[in-house]
């Protein structure tokens, strides 16, 4: 059933990473991405790979889930690897296939690029999306951006909208399913005919869906008013995000990792990109 699909990639758990402050995780994931891009040579890549593996182990997310997340990228991975192997111009010729020449540098480059893509995806999702619930993520964003309120950016409203959207996505997916079935029962035909006919066949689904979304929005607005909602002013929060020493260690670890990458880049020999 559609509604059973977990949204985002949040994987519930109670690991060290799950318990981290969402604000720190947002910053840490940005720093991590920078660190990955700073990697220049074999050793720094090796280092970042080890670091990423450590993160995965720390998050206690099953390998199966991680691999499933990488799967959609498989095509891009293969494509860029093949492209780099065949078209990278280097000095050390490995093989001459007449049409294309394969260089040692090309193979290395392809390998490192693949590692970079996988690290980017796995690392950032382990730090952020797998281990942070959508609501914590929204919360973190709201609080990180709250200084912008001083220049009249509606940060609270934006976060509230995100929360409501996240809350209603499963409801609306279910509703779409229901309306589609109801119209199918009246003989609507979504799978045959040309483009225009198919587009027309969507009308009986889209109109009820919009009508229902508006009705829900109206109901929700009234319900929120009844619960004394009056925007972000004077509002408190139940979950207080307090930064503990441990939250800073997370940030410092990623910072150190970035620093280490830079140092390794500078002092270690070998192939660099």
């Amino acid at each position: 059933m559609l509604k059973d699909i977990t949204l985002g990639q949040y994987f519930p758990g109670n690991s060290f990473l799950h318990r981290q402050d969402p604000r720190m995780k947002i910053i840490a994931s940005i720093l991590y991405i920078v660190a990955v891009f700073l990697c220049k040579n074999l050793f720094s890549f090796l280092f970042i790979t080890l670091f990423t593996v450590a993160l995965v182990l720390l998050s206690r997310i099953p390998m199966k889930v991680i691999l499933k997340g990488v799967k959609p990228l498989l095509f891009i991975l293969i494509f860029t690897t093949v492209y780099n192997v065949f078209f990278y111009q280097g000095e050390h010729l490995l093989a001459d296939l007449k049409i294309v020449k394969i260089y040692f540098e090309g193979v290395m480059f392809a390998l490192l690029m693949a590692v970079r893509i996988v690290c980017l995806l796995v690392g950032s999702s382990v730090i952020l999306t797998y281990t942070t619930s959508p609501i914590m993520l929204t919360d973190g964003l709201e609080r990180l951006l709250s200084p912008l309120r001083k220049i009249h950016v509606p940060v609270h409203e934006f976060a509230m909208m995100m929360t409501i959207a996240l809350r209603f996505i499963p409801t609306l997916i279910e509703e779409t399913d229901k309306i589609m079935n109801a119209q199918k029962a009246r003989g609507s035909d979504l799978s045959s005919g040309g483009l225009i006919r198919r587009a027309k066949a969507l009308i009986p689904i889209l109109i009820p869906l919009f009508v229902s979304a508006f009705r829900r929005a109206n109901d929700l607005a009234v319900a929120m008013e009844c619960r004394c909602y009056r925007g972000g002013n004077g509002r408190t929060r139940m979950t207080q995000l307090r930064l503990h020493a441990i939250d800073w260690t997370m940030l410092f670890t990623v910072l150190l990792c970035g620093g280490a990458v830079v140092i390794i880049n500078l002092y270690s020999p070998g192939f660099s990109v």
């Binding site: 509703e175 229901k178 309306i179 079935n181 109801a182 119209q183 199918k184 029962a185 009246r186 003989g187 609507s188 035909d189 009308i203 009986p204 109109i207 009820p208 009508v211 229902s212």
Partner: peptide, 29 residues
């Protein structure tokens, strides 16, 4: 499709599937 014309199904809260401009057109769908 022919089967669905022979076996008509009214879902719960069917009023949420109305979409036409007039009552007659909706019934005629």
């Amino acid at each position: 499709r022919k089967l669905r014309f022979r076996v008509g199904l009214v879902f719960q809260y069917p009023e949420y599937q109305l979409f036409e401009e007039t009552v007659a057109e909706d019934i005629a769908y």
